[in-house]
């Protein structure tokens, strides 16, 4: 009885968002009398970082400090319409809507400042620190706060902007079958090293190494956070989780966290990620976003690594010890594949 090591690889081209009937997101931005801005979105931040990314995008486009932007999400009664947070569309779709709304609000902001400074709005620039001044003449200046107050108390203007980003429905061409369901693709390649125990059928993920191409990385730490957390989910889907282990018989299904298995903090593997940035032409500042693809390549990479280790091709998830032991028996024993590549020495 022995443990066998194996290496598997998987690559993915991952579509950002989907387009089943058109895919719109809207954003509304307005300034308050204190010169701070509220961004209203109906999409929800489940912890993936959409609020932070929207805040960065709004502040950058408005030309104001990031601490002066508040993002209000997830009230579909009062917020503008949004398809939702799914299909990895958050950064790309909401980000573009926020840019459109922030551009319009910035236009009104500069018009109001121009009226106060008695100059042409096209000569005005923002310094990103809460000031608006005439290009080349920094002494001719007004704060965003004073501008917001002048607009609201004197000029009778709302400093506000509306934004929508819409990928229109792309129908299938009857002649060619061609369609354009998506505008941005992200890419990844992941290598998993595993060890398979031929006595117990247990798989241990030894380490994973990946490269992700996600367009412009708008918040590097949050991208890393998504990739690391998502890879854990990938391991969990590959080796542990299922609501119906003996489908279609539901009686053996797990009913609670004692029975619904997931890797714990002692089961995680060292994971090394390299992020590549190829800005997307239609992305907000070139961003695409990580989303679900953080988990996706982990599953086939682990399945391939198991095959490489013991010669068992498991094509139903999760890859349980039982399936591996049945596979080894059906093959008449362990059939390790060729060892691939050298040792990984990044850790």
């Amino acid at each position: 009885m022995a443990r066998h090591e194996g290496r598997g690889m998987a690559s993915v081209n991952y579509p950002i968002g989907m387009n089943l009937g058109g895919d719109p997101s809207q954003a509304l931005i307005h300034s308050n009398p204190d010169g701070k801005f509220t961004v209203a979105l109906s999409a929800i931040d489940l912890g993936q970082g959409m609020k932070q990314v929207s805040r960065q995008i709004a502040a950058e486009t408005l030309g104001v400090p990031i601490e002066d932007v508040y993002v209000d999400t997830a009230d579909s009664d009062t917020g503008p319409h949004d398809m939702g947070s799914f299909a990895s569309r958050g950064t790309h779709r909401m980000g573009n809507a926020v840019i459109a709304a922030a551009r319009e609000a910035r236009g009104v902001l500069l018009d109001a400042a121009a009226e106060e400074l008695e100059v042409n709005a096209s000569d005005l620039v923002t310094d990103g620190r809460g000031n608006i001044h005439v290009r080349g003449a920094p002494s001719k200046t007004i704060t965003v706060k004073a501008t917001a107050q002048a607009a609201q108390f004197k000029q009778g203007k709302t400093i506000a902007g509306r934004g929508i980003f819409l990928i229109p429905l792309s129908a299938v061409d009857a002649e060619t079958g061609e369609m354009n369901p998506n505008t941005a693709f992200a890419h990844a390649c992941l290598v998993a090293d595993v060890s398979v125990d031929d006595e117990t059928g247990e798989v241990t993920v030894l380490r994973m190494t990946s490269a992700y191409e996600l367009g412009r990385v708008i918040n590097p730490r949050m991208v890393e956070q998504q990739l690391v957390g998502g890879a854990w989910m990938g391991i969990s889907h590959a080796l542990y989780e299922t609501p119906e282990p003996y489908y279609p018989n539901p009686e053996h299904g797990p009913r609670d966290f004692n029975e619904y298995l997931m890797p714990g903090p002692g089961d995680i593997a060292p994971y090394h990620v390299t992020v590549l940035e190829r800005p997307a032409p239609d992305g907000p500042f070139g961003g695409k976003g990580p989303g679900e693809m953080c988990a996706n390549p982990v599953l086939p990479a682990i399945a391939n690594a198991v095959y490489n280790a013991v010669g068992v091709r498991v094509d139903e998830l999760p890859i349980t010890p039982e399936k591996i032991l049945r596979g080894i028996r059906a093959n008449g024993g362990v059939k390790p594949g060729p060892r691939r590549g050298g040792a990984v020495n990044w850790r």
């Binding site: 912890g47 956070q225 690391v228 957390g229 998502g230 890879a231 854990w232 989910m233 966290f257 997931m262 714990g264 903090p265 002692g266 995680i268 994971y271």
Partner: peptide
Amino acid sequence: VVEAISGNICRCTGYEP
């Protein structure tokens, strides 16, 4: 540390952070 948090489930972070 791993032992101390082994009774706590996290769905998002992958525990490493």
